[in-house]
């Protein structure tokens, strides 16, 4: 079985896995990193959203081989130790989560957006396609705007 070396949340890892095995299952089942969630497996719900070299990806459709040599960040690695990322802070301030299942993906999507777009418009926020079945969208929008202000 081929082995793949990449970094997850700042630590280098090597896994033996079929090259086409989606990264989501490498993270969850082989590495025990269970922040990224399964919601569809086909790049629709975005519950699994994580970062590859800082940009949003959906590991449910990224083969593990494509991670090789790159830096993967999951929700577990977004904070700096006990210091939360401003997006996480804003999520707490606004009390966004309900069931919480979509929120790791929502937060990673928002963090990636703010990296490229420091003052997102409503249209920028509308473009985030992550499903929240609990309907927390109003608070997500508010939190993204609050985080953008904090980071400015």
């Amino acid at each position: 079985m081929p082995s793949h070396t990449f970094s997850v949340n700042g630590k280098s890892v090597t896994v033996d896995a079929p090259s086409d095995l989606p990264l989501l299952w490498v993270l969850r089942d082989l590495l025990g990193i269970r922040g990224p969630k399964y919601g569809c497996g086909i790049d629709v719900c975005k519950a699994c959203t994580s970062h590859l070299d800082g940009a949003a990806i959906n590991p449910c459709v990224v083969p593990v081989s494509e991670a090789a040599g790159h830096e993967i960040t999951t929700i577990e690695g977004l904070a700096n130790g006990d210091t939360l990322h401003p997006v996480q802070e804003a999520w707490l301030d606004v009390d966004v989560p309900q069931c919480g299942y979509c929120q790791p993906g929502q937060i990673m999507a928002a963090a990636a957006l703010l990296k490229t777009t420091s003052t997102p418009t409503d249209a920028d926020i509308d473009a985030i396609a992550n499903v929240c079945r609990c309907g927390t969208y109003v608070r997500i929008r508010e939190a993204i705007k609050a985080a953008a202000e904090k980071m400015a």
Partner: peptide
């Protein structure tokens, strides 16, 4: 009042059924 589990949720530490070891 904010949810008592909000911090766990936003840091990815809230465990759902298939997150249990």
């Amino acid at each position: 009042t904010s949810r008592i589990d909000a911090r766990k949720i936003v840091t990815g530490r809230q465990e759902y059924t298939l997150d249990l070891d």
